[in-house]
Write a protein that binds this DNA or RNA. Structure first.
Lengths: 113, 113
DNA sequence: TTTTTATTTAATTAAATAGTTGAATATTAG
DNA sequence: CTAATATTCAACTATTTAATTAAATAAAAA
């Protein structure tokens, strides 16, 4: 079978399993953001935001462009795609299995008559 | 904006952030499995597998049909779809933003001439 | 009814997580 | 050069996680 693992799936899903980090993703989807911009909506220290950002970077979901004293953070499209791919594979697989099952049932019904 | 949060996203992504649990999902995608069947490929106690299963159930990714002393575990298609939806929303959003940016650049280039 | 099989619960442990505060580092502005 | 701004690092704490082993339940088989 195709290996849909990918090196970072643990880190990707872990990074997304937190609403603060998902909200940060949401913000970066809208436009690139500095660390302190990312911090604005949250009732949380900058150090905490910095750590959340590290988690997103570890997962390769975010890239950072250091620009003087401000760090600009941008989503990494490829990584989002990688996670989507994993999920979508199983979603489709399941659908397919469901259809097969349905066909079996129809066939059985036909043979009954 | 549409709320792509959903009640269980924390739990869903957390559940998927572990390769043992992803492998269990993989197995159940193929066909429904009992707890001890799920345990076979892993060098791990049944108690540990039972707990992993609980994490998948808490996330609503798995449903259990108790059949006498064996419990049959099945993937919940809707929940997989929910996570895919969240990811796909951002993936598309990002793509769109990327396209817009590209258009801007093309326009700027044209006006340069 | 006793034994075996399937699964969970409880108690424990080591490591990871999410947050804090205070100090440190780097860069820019006055 | 000094002060302000942007960000990280270090030390600490409480909670959660992933695993273990041993005991408990519950159902099926002998």
């Amino acid at each position: 079978m195709v290996n849909y693992e990918g090196k970072y799936l643990d880190e990707i899903f872990h990074a997304l399993a937190n609403s603060t980090r998902r909200e940060m993703v949401n913000m970066m989807a809208l436009e690139d953001r500095s660390v302190s911009e990312l911090a604005v909506p949250f009732d949380m220290s900058l150090a905490a935001i910095s750590k959340h950002l590290k988690v997103l970077e570890r997962a390769n979901l975010v890239e950072r462009i250091v620009n003087g004293r401000t760090h600009i953070c941008r989503l990494n499209k490829e990584t989002l795609a990688q996670a989507t791919e994993w999920l979508d594979f199983y979603r489709k697989f399941w659908s397919n299995r469901f259809d097969l099952l349905e066909n079996e049932l129809l066939k059985a019904k036909k043979e009954e008559q």
